[in-house]
């Protein structure tokens, strides 16, 4: 044990293997989805968070079950980290009735309201105010939960960002705005779209804390989010956490990535979040390489099985078309 691993109070050492497995589940799930899209086995579009697993897993690791999240169009990782099963997710992408949305939402709208996942969102910046509203419920009904609002660097340029952060700050709502800065808003490099280095700096204009963490380092992310969650739970209001990370894949399924270089991609690949996590955990003696390999294999198997589950699930009948429009 060369260094003492610092964990936030909300995360126990015994949970780390599970978090490691979540990282692989996300990776394998998305690679599988990528493959199926490429083969034309599933239709529509999808946004992959390969390379960003640590920010999803690290941030959600510090939440309690009662806490809630709002997700983005790039939300598979958030769902899995918040406890969604890959079966239900894969079935949703296959458009089957056993999917999280009975096949009506698809990749961009996976929600698991019971587990506190208020849903992915196809509108960039659509989650800010919804998160604030969910936090308002917690505050008014004294339910004690906090809301983690994921957003991207691109969404921070939406007007809703400003309106919701201002509102959350004046009402001291229990919400944490976590920016996964993956360097690109679709094709737009963050440096060309934002005139400051750190999006976290925008917190100053709302009189709330803003902090930058290493989004590829699951431990750094969880430690950074931990403070913000405590603050929110204590009624001190919202924070911004900016997790610097990198979108390894293109924006969506049809992206030639002409706006960036192979060299840049390779450089970030050296800091692959799963590899980094495994290195630390082996170094800290939390598991062996062999155990790490076993977890990886388990995750792979689970994703393989989810494909079988999805394929064997029924398609919705046409009756379902007009169902669920109104409560």
């Amino acid at each position: 044990m060369t260094q003492k691993l610092k964990l936030p109070p909300q995360v126990k050492e015994t949970e780390l293997r599970e978090l490691y497995k979540q990282m692989w589940l996300i990776r394998f799930f998305e690679e599988k989805v990528d493959e199926f899209f490429a083969k034309g086995m599933i239709h529509g579009t999808t946004h992959l968070s390969v390379g960003q697993e640590a920010s999803a897993v690290g941030a959600i690791a510090v939440l309690e079950d009662k806490d809630k999240i709002t997700s983005t169009h790039r939300g598979h990782g958030h769902c899995i980290a918040k406890g969604a099963t890959v079966n239900g997710m894969m079935a949703e992408l296959f458009g089957r009735t056993t999917g999280y949305c009975k096949g009506k939402g698809g990749s961009m709208h996976i929600a698991d309201v019971d587990k506190g996942n208020l849903g992915a969102n196809g509108i960039v910046g659509g989650g800010f105010a919804i998160a604030a509203g969910a936090a308002l419920t917690s505050q008014m009904k004294k339910e004690g939960y906090v809301v983690l609002c994921f957003f991207g660097d691109g969404a921070s340029n939406e007007g809703s960002f400003h309106e919701a952060l201002n509102l959350a700050s004046i009402w001291k709502l229990p919400v944490i705005f976590i920016c996964e800065n993956n360097q690109y808003g679709m094709s737009g490099p963050v440096k060309e779209m934002i005139n400051i280095e750190d999006i976290a700096d925008r917190a100053a204009s709302y009189g709330i804390p803003g902090k930058v963490v290493d989004g590829n380092d699951v431990f750094d992310t969880m430690n950074g989010v931990s403070e913000a969650v405590e603050r929110a739970r204590n009624g001190e209001g919202p924070s911004i956490i900016e997790a610097k990370t990198y979108r390894s894949k293109g924006h969506s399924k049809s992206d030639a990535k002409k706006y960036r270089t192979r060299e840049e991609e390779k450089e970030w690949l050296l800091r692959d979040p799963i590899k980094l996590m495994a290195e630390v955990m082996i170094e800290e003696g939390i598991f062996t390489q062999q155990e790490a390999d076993q977890i990886k294999a388990d995750a792979k198997k689970e994703v393989e099985e989810s494909v079988e589950f999805a394929k064997n699930s029924p398609e919705p009948t046409l009756d379902a078309l007009m169902e669920d429009i109104y409560a």
């Binding site: 809630k68 800010f128 509203g133 309106e163 509102l167």
Partner: peptide, 26 residues
């Protein structure tokens, strides 16, 4: 003032906040 909630001039935020609150039980 808790239940008659004066808001900033932020129609995008207050409409979204209403959606979020409604979705979570208000």
């Amino acid at each position: 003032p808790e239940r008659i909630r004066n808001t900033p001039i932020s129609e995008a935020a207050i409409s979204g906040t209403a959606v979020g609150a409604a979705l979570t039980g208000m």
